[in-house]
Amino acid sequence: KDKDLLKGLDQEQANEVIAVLQMHNIEANKIDSGKLGYSITVAEPDFTAAVYWIK
């Protein structure tokens, strides 16, 4: 199951987060929520590491 990592990002921010996570071998998903911006989700086992790397 995926957990929400970040919400309300613009496309550039979302792409930067995806890139950082991929560099650390964390699979992440970018979801277009329309006017609400983009959300990033990661698998539950990767959540703690993902939070660490996006600081």
Rank of each mutant, 00 (worst) to 15 (best):
K1G: 10
K1F: 10
K1A: 11
K1H: 10
K1W: 09
K1Y: 10
K1V: 09
D2H: 15
D2E: 11
D2I: 14
D2P: 13
D2F: 15
D2N: 12
D2T: 14
D2V: 14
K3V: 14
K3R: 13
K3W: 09
K3I: 13
K3H: 07
K3D: 03
D4S: 13
D4Q: 15
D4V: 15
D4L: 15
D4G: 09
D4P: 14
D4T: 15
D4M: 15
L5I: 06
L5W: 03
L5F: 06
L5K: 01
L5E: 01
L5P: 02
L5D: 02
L5S: 01
L5M: 05
L6Q: 04
L6T: 02
L6C: 14
L6H: 02
L6E: 02
L6Y: 06
K7L: 09
K7R: 12
K7W: 13
K7I: 13
K7Y: 13
K7C: 15
K7E: 08
K7P: 02
G8M: 05
G8N: 09
G8V: 03
G8R: 04
G8S: 04
G8L: 06
G8C: 13
G8Q: 04
G8P: 01
L9Q: 00
L9E: 01
L9I: 08
L9P: 00
L9G: 02
L9W: 02
L9Y: 02
D10N: 13
D10E: 05
D10L: 07
D10A: 07
D10T: 15
D10F: 04
Q11N: 14
Q11E: 15
Q11I: 13
Q11K: 11
Q11H: 11
Q11M: 12
Q11A: 13
Q11V: 11
Q11F: 14
E12L: 10
E12K: 12
E12R: 12
E12H: 11
E12Q: 12
E12V: 09
E12S: 09
E12D: 12
E12N: 10
Q13T: 12
Q13I: 06
Q13E: 10
Q13K: 09
Q13H: 09
Q13P: 02
Q13M: 09
A14Q: 01
A14P: 00
A14W: 03
A14H: 03
N15H: 06
N15Q: 07
N15W: 07
E16P: 01
E16A: 14
E16D: 09
E16T: 11
E16M: 13
E16V: 11
E16I: 13
V17C: 08
V17Q: 01
V17F: 10
V17A: 07
V17D: 00
V17H: 02
V17N: 01
V17M: 09
V17S: 02
V17K: 01
I18D: 02
I18K: 03
I18V: 07
I18F: 06
I18T: 03
I18G: 00
I18N: 00
I18E: 02
I18S: 01
I18M: 11
A19K: 13
A19W: 11
A19E: 08
A19P: 00
A19F: 12
A19T: 07
A19N: 09
A19R: 15
A19I: 09
V20L: 15
V20Y: 15
V20I: 14
L21V: 01
L21E: 01
Q22V: 07
Q22T: 08
Q22C: 11
Q22D: 05
Q22R: 14
M23C: 12
M23I: 07
M23S: 11
M23Y: 10
M23K: 12
M23A: 12
M23F: 11
M23D: 07
M23G: 07
H24F: 06
H24L: 05
H24D: 01
H24Q: 06
H24Y: 08
H24T: 01
N25T: 04
N25E: 05
N25R: 06
N25K: 07
N25Y: 07
N25G: 15
N25S: 08
N25W: 06
I26W: 02
I26V: 04
I26K: 00
I26M: 03
I26H: 00
I26D: 00
I26P: 00
E27H: 15
E27V: 14
E27C: 14
E27I: 15
E27W: 13
A28W: 06
A28P: 03
A28G: 05
A28M: 03
A28T: 04
A28H: 04
A28E: 00
N29T: 11
N29S: 10
N29K: 14
N29C: 10
N29H: 12
N29R: 14
N29W: 11
N29F: 11
N29P: 01
K30W: 07
K30I: 15
K30Y: 07
K30G: 04
K30P: 03
K30V: 14
I31Q: 05
I31N: 07
I31F: 07
I31M: 05
I31H: 09
D32A: 09
D32G: 10
D32E: 07
D32K: 09
D32N: 11
D32H: 10
S33R: 15
S33Y: 15
S33C: 15
S33H: 15
S33F: 14
G34M: 03
G34E: 04
G34I: 03
G34T: 03
K35Q: 09
K35I: 12
K35D: 12
K35M: 09
K35Y: 10
K35S: 11
K35L: 12
K35R: 10
L36V: 06
L36T: 09
L36Y: 12
G37V: 10
G37W: 05
G37R: 06
G37I: 05
G37E: 03
Y38N: 02
Y38H: 03
Y38D: 01
Y38V: 07
S39Y: 09
S39A: 09
S39N: 08
S39C: 11
S39G: 06
S39K: 14
I40P: 00
I40R: 00
I40A: 01
I40G: 00
I40V: 09
T41Y: 10
T41V: 10
T41W: 11
T41K: 07
T41F: 08
T41A: 05
V42H: 01
V42D: 01
V42E: 01
V42L: 04
V42Q: 00
V42P: 00
A43Q: 07
A43P: 08
A43C: 07
A43M: 08
A43E: 05
A43Y: 06
A43L: 07
A43K: 13
E44A: 12
E44R: 06
E44W: 10
E44H: 06
E44P: 07
E44F: 09
E44Q: 05
E44G: 09
P45F: 13
P45Q: 14
P45G: 14
P45V: 14
P45R: 15
P45N: 14
P45M: 14
P45E: 15
P45D: 14
D46M: 08
D46T: 04
D46A: 05
F47I: 04
F47V: 04
F47H: 04
F47S: 01
F47Y: 12
F47R: 02
T48P: 12
T48F: 13
T48V: 12
T48Y: 13
T48Q: 13
A49Y: 07
A49G: 04
A49H: 06
A49F: 06
A49Q: 08
A49R: 11
A50M: 03
A50H: 02
A50Q: 02
A50R: 00
A50V: 05
A50L: 04
A50K: 02
V51I: 12
V51T: 08
V51N: 09
V51M: 14
V51Y: 11
Y52Q: 11
Y52L: 06
W53I: 13
W53T: 03
W53H: 06
W53S: 01
W53F: 07
W53N: 00
W53Y: 10
I54N: 00
I54E: 03
I54A: 05
I54S: 04
K55M: 13
K55W: 12
K55Q: 13
K55H: 12
K55V: 12
K55D: 12
